[in-house]
Amino acid sequence: MDFLQPRSWADALAARAERPDAVPIAGGTDLMVDLNFDRRRPGALLDLGRVAELREWSVGDGAGGGRTVRLGAGVPYARIVDELGDRLPGLAMAARTVGSPQIRVRGTVGGNLGSASPAGDAHPPLLAVGAVIEVESAARGARRIPAADFYTGVKRSALAEDELIAAVLLPEAAGPQQFCKVGTRNAMVIAVSAFACALHPDRKAVGTGIGSAAPTPRRAPEAEEFLAGELDSAGLWDSRGELPETLARAFGERVAAAASPIDDVRGSAAYRRHSLSVMARRSVLWAWTQYQHDLRKAA
């Protein structure tokens, strides 16, 4: 097995093109497990750890007047927690639940996307904020894939054979975001189910992301439209009045209905669906309370 270690993004793309048998490795927290268990023996490992550009994040103007964070694919979770909690609160909350401190120092959002496991902790907040994945190949250059289109099946993604993940583009939070994850112990656990929500008061929209409860991470579009519509028709976006518990509950039920969970050793399908309804209800109430509080803070 060869070990390729490009020093620049251009070299990395070239190596990816030349060696279709090479598997990219970032933090290695997924891939090394596969190697150690002898599940994979790729012809080469393409180590992206020396590509400095991947380990940077920056803020620029985004579409619609907001600001956008360009998060390099190789920024580890520990730095997301430390550096981006204000701009990307949902992703930072998810990052905090990843593995152990040691894993958070190694693991990256790019790696999570590369593995495309339905249980990846980063996926639900990416979906909830409408993140865009920037990928690139030496032959065709860069292209952008909305997160909702990125996941194509269990551990499969829209990434082409000759492409690498460069960055994730996420709008800076315009409203409160929440992330919840159920596991059967209180740390270092793979999600039994996970849920992210984001309030977008700027466009009176609600974003959602579901993890570990379908073949891929997915949104709950009907729940998003339902809640945003109800909030709008009750004038709550502007009044910032109380979010009725019944509305939160109905939202939770719609989120649960959007899932297609299975029974497995980590949990039952019925529990996954139930836990999603609870997490969605609670988290949207927390987000709404924050939204109300934000106004008081502003006033």
Binding site: M93, R96, T97, Q178, F179, C180, K181, V182, G183, N186, A187, V189, S275, V278, M279, R282, S283, W286
Partner: peptide, 9 residues
């Protein structure tokens, strides 16, 4: 319960 999984306040 749930710890930083942030499942309850």
């Amino acid at each position: 319960p749930g710890s930083v999984g942030n499942t309850t306040h």
